[in-house]
């Protein structure tokens, strides 16, 4: 089962430290951050053909902001990622509820779902580009494929994890199949769905980027690949900094929604999937 849910969403462990060392902790983290930046700068000076320093990278990002180029490329990539995520995750959440209506169908689907999870979906991108062209559609399909299986399997496992006694108890109150699905199965699967969504989000952006590397006219991936072809190393770095910021920001937003949706769970509940 574990390989089918397939991604780990780590949380920072509460450090078991005394309060008095907390200021030192902040200081040490700041020190490490500055140290990493200095290392980056040193490497950039040592091999300028391979590494663009932090300052030129930052200036390039600011350039892109000033000219407004950043808006159109971030927009293109976000549109692909969100469009694909909506389709993929949407189907991934809804279909297990249809499948679970029939135990026989569930038994048939399960091994196929697990096999398809094993297909490296990003490897399909050249084929999808052949089928759907180099525009937006092929990337949305790629992202949807990438995220669908993750969310589908997690939701499926979530539904399966519901205790039979909880379902019986609710049935005794007079709940029908639909009410049980809506109240018990839906809510019980939420922790699984959210963990899967958080695992799927970086992959959605990754998939959009791979699609753009291979062929595109716009987007962050296009910008990185284009800069690479021009041997413009600063451009490659700027593109990657933007991607990293986008992924971290999107995860922070999703995490906020996850906290709200799962407010009923204990704080220390493990939100990772195994």
């Amino acid at each position: 089962m574990s390989q089918s849910i397939s991604h780990i969403v780590p949380e920072i462990a509460e450090p078991q430290l005394r309060r008095s060392v907390m200021p030192w902790l902040a200081l040490a983290r700041g020190g490490v951050a500055i140290g990493l930046l200095l290392m980056w700068e040193a490497f950039a000076r040592w091999v300028p053909d391979l590494i663009a320093g932090p300052l030129p990278t930052l200036l390039r990002v600011m350039d892109l902001v000033r000219t407004g180029e950043i808006v159109s490329m971030v927009w293109a990539t976000t549109l692909e990622a969100i469009g694909g995520l909506l389709i993929g995750a949407g189907l991934g959440v809804v279909l297990p509820f249809v499948v679970q209506m029939s135990p026989r169908l569930s038994a048939v689907i399960e091994p196929f779902a697990k096999t398809t999870v094993g297909i490296p979906k990003l490897a399909l991108s050249p084929i999808l580009i052949m089928w759907f062209g180099i525009g937006l559609t092929s990337k949305i399909v790629l992202v949807a494929l990438m995220t669908f299986f993750l969310v589908f399997v997690a939701t499926f496992v979530g539904i399966r994890s519901v205790g039979p006694n909880l379902i019986r108890t609710v049935a005794i109150f007079g709940a029908g199949k639909l009410e049980i699905a809506r109240e018990v199965l839906w809510n019980s699967s939420q922790p699984f769905v959210w963990a899967a969504l958080r695992a799927a989000l970086p992959w959605a952006i990754n998939a959009a980027l791979v699609g753009e590397f291979l062929s595109a006219e716009n987007g962050i991936g296009y910008y990185i690949h284009h800069s690479y072809n021009l041997a413009d190393i600063t451009g490659v770095y700027a593109g990657m900094v933007i991607t990293a910021a986008l992924v971290l920001l999107a995860d922070a937003v999703l995490r906020l929604f996850q906290r709200r949706a799962l407010a009923w769970r204990p704080d220390n509940a493990d939100q990772t999937l195994h």
Partner: peptide, 13 residues
């Protein structure tokens, strides 16, 4: 959290 796949061009450089 960094999207490693996005770093492929960098690894190639």
């Amino acid at each position: 959290g960094l999207p490693k796949i996005a770093f492929i061009p960098l690894f190639i450089v």
